[in-house]
Amino acid sequence: MANVVLYIAMSLDGKIARTNDDLDWLVEVVGEGDNGYADFFKTVGAVIMGRKTYEEVLKLASDGYPYPDIPNYILTRNPDREAEHVTFTDEPIERLIERLKQDIDGDVWIVGGGEIIKAAMEHDLIDRYEIIVAPVVLGEGIPMFPEGTKETKLKLTSQRASGQFVMVTYEK
């Protein structure tokens, strides 16, 4: 059965984006190659993200939508939109993930943002947390774990450096 994986980068102070959703700070950090992204993506069978994250992905995707060959779900309060390669939905995350785990080959990747992460954690849906820590302190921005996120105990299963990034993996 598929695992649900949070694979995400954050600043040293736990932010996943600037207050204006910008990720400029992230692309300025020097890593090693793709920092293991290609190997991770081989395991992915579906992608879930919030609308704001989706809009940032589109801004960064100069070569076209980066995940066109697998199911993509954009969680939004206004699902009456259409776009190539994605399904906009207001389906509760717990139902969506339950359905995907039965229907897809590969893992379910939660891309972000913070409110999606919070909702997934509220229902204890995330099996593995793969967090890429950038050596940047933003001081303010969008937190990976918004206020009110459910307390969750995790076990560190691996860590490694990749250029200036630290890659850590936790499991529940």
Score class of each variant (00 low, 15 high):
residue 23 L to I: 14
residue 80 D to A: 10
residue 31 G to Q: 12
residue 123 H to M: 07
residue 98 E to T: 13
residue 136 V to M: 09
residue 86 V to E: 06
residue 38 A to F: 05
residue 139 G to E: 10
residue 152 T to G: 07
residue 124 D to Q: 12
residue 8 I to D: 08
residue 150 K to G: 06
residue 13 D to T: 12
residue 42 K to Q: 11
residue 45 G to V: 01
residue 14 G to C: 12
residue 5 V to M: 10
residue 108 V to R: 00
residue 66 P to S: 05
residue 172 K to Y: 04
residue 163 G to E: 03
residue 78 N to I: 08
residue 80 D to Q: 11
residue 2 A to Q: 10
residue 84 E to D: 13
residue 43 T to G: 12
residue 168 V to L: 15
residue 129 Y to E: 02
residue 40 F to R: 12
residue 159 Q to F: 13
residue 26 L to I: 11
residue 76 T to A: 10
residue 94 E to Q: 12
residue 123 H to K: 15
residue 153 K to M: 06
residue 38 A to S: 14
residue 165 F to S: 06
residue 71 P to V: 04
residue 109 W to M: 02
residue 34 D to A: 02
residue 60 L to T: 09
residue 66 P to E: 08
residue 55 E to S: 04
residue 4 V to C: 14
residue 56 E to C: 08
residue 55 E to V: 09
residue 6 L to C: 03
residue 82 E to F: 10
residue 45 G to N: 01
residue 74 I to T: 02
residue 43 T to H: 02
residue 96 L to W: 12
residue 122 E to M: 09
residue 14 G to Y: 12
residue 6 L to Q: 02
residue 171 E to A: 02
residue 101 K to T: 13
residue 171 E to T: 09
residue 141 G to A: 06
residue 161 A to T: 06
residue 83 A to P: 02
residue 76 T to Q: 07
residue 127 D to K: 11
residue 119 A to V: 00
residue 46 A to I: 00
residue 132 I to M: 14
residue 142 I to H: 03
residue 115 E to S: 14
residue 130 E to L: 11
residue 75 L to M: 06
residue 90 D to K: 13
residue 92 P to G: 00
residue 68 P to C: 07
residue 155 K to G: 02
residue 61 A to D: 11
residue 86 V to Y: 06
residue 3 N to D: 12
residue 4 V to S: 05
residue 48 I to H: 08
residue 122 E to L: 10
residue 37 Y to Q: 08
residue 71 P to Y: 04
residue 41 F to G: 01
residue 74 I to M: 04
residue 110 I to L: 14
residue 46 A to H: 13
residue 145 F to G: 08
residue 166 V to W: 05
residue 65 Y to M: 01
residue 23 L to Q: 10
residue 128 R to I: 15
residue 14 G to D: 09
residue 9 A to Q: 03
residue 134 A to T: 11
residue 119 A to I: 06
residue 32 E to R: 04
residue 51 R to C: 01
residue 134 A to Q: 13
residue 161 A to Q: 14
residue 12 L to A: 13
residue 76 T to P: 04
residue 105 D to R: 11
residue 137 V to D: 03
residue 6 L to D: 01
residue 119 A to W: 08
residue 112 G to C: 01
residue 118 K to Y: 11
residue 137 V to I: 15
residue 60 L to I: 08
